[in-house]
Computed example of a mutant assay.
Amino acid sequence: MASLQKQAHDLFLTGVRAADPTIAVRNALIKRPLTRAPEGTLFLIAFGKAACAMMEEALRHIPTGQRHDALTGVGSGWGRNHTLRAYEPKFSSDREEC
């Protein structure tokens, strides 16, 4: 019985790790890096419960010196009390907490 509980626990933890928004964004941007927009602004948008975690990771992958805008949207449920947080245009060396 203990072996079955350990196996169930291990499967649960594997699922939780697979759903980690930071790891998911990191893996996606390693496989397909953001490209530099030499004459423009890179726009990053994230919505939902994991918006801040996803945005914080995505900001780490912006090409050096790239001008960018970031927008996150979080709320308590679809259609209710959504708060959008817009950031002023900045360079990748400037960071704000989500």
Rank of each mutant, 00 (worst) to 15 (best):
M1F: 11
A2V: 09
S3R: 14
S3P: 02
Q5I: 10
Q5F: 11
K6D: 12
A8R: 13
H9N: 12
F12D: 05
F12H: 11
F12P: 02
L13I: 10
V16H: 02
A18Q: 14
D20H: 04
T22D: 07
T22Y: 02
I23R: 15
I23L: 15
A24N: 10
V25D: 00
V25Y: 00
I30G: 01
I30M: 05
I30R: 06
K31Q: 14
R32V: 10
P33D: 08
L34I: 14
L34H: 08
L34C: 09
T35P: 03
T35W: 08
R36Y: 12
A37S: 04
G40Q: 06
T41K: 06
T41M: 07
L42N: 02
L42M: 07
F43P: 01
L44V: 05
L44K: 03
I45V: 15
A46V: 01
F47N: 01
F47R: 01
F47Y: 09
G48I: 01
G48H: 00
G48V: 01
A50V: 03
A50G: 07
C52F: 02
A53Y: 00
M54K: 03
M55P: 00
E56V: 03
E56F: 00
E56M: 05
E56I: 01
E57V: 02
A58C: 14
R60K: 15
R60T: 11
H61P: 01
H61M: 09
I62F: 03
T64S: 10
T64W: 06
T64Y: 06
G65F: 12
R67W: 11
R67N: 14
R67A: 09
A70P: 02
L71S: 04
T72H: 01
T72V: 15
G73A: 13
V74Y: 05
V74M: 12
V74F: 11
G75P: 01
S76I: 14
G77H: 03
G77D: 03
G79F: 10
R80I: 13
R80S: 08
R80F: 12
H82N: 13
H82I: 14
T83K: 15
T83Y: 08
T83F: 07
L84N: 15
L84M: 15
R85P: 00
A86W: 14
A86M: 13
A86K: 06
P89T: 14
F91I: 11
F91Y: 12
S92V: 06
S92I: 05
S93V: 13
R95P: 01
E97D: 13
E97A: 13
C98K: 02
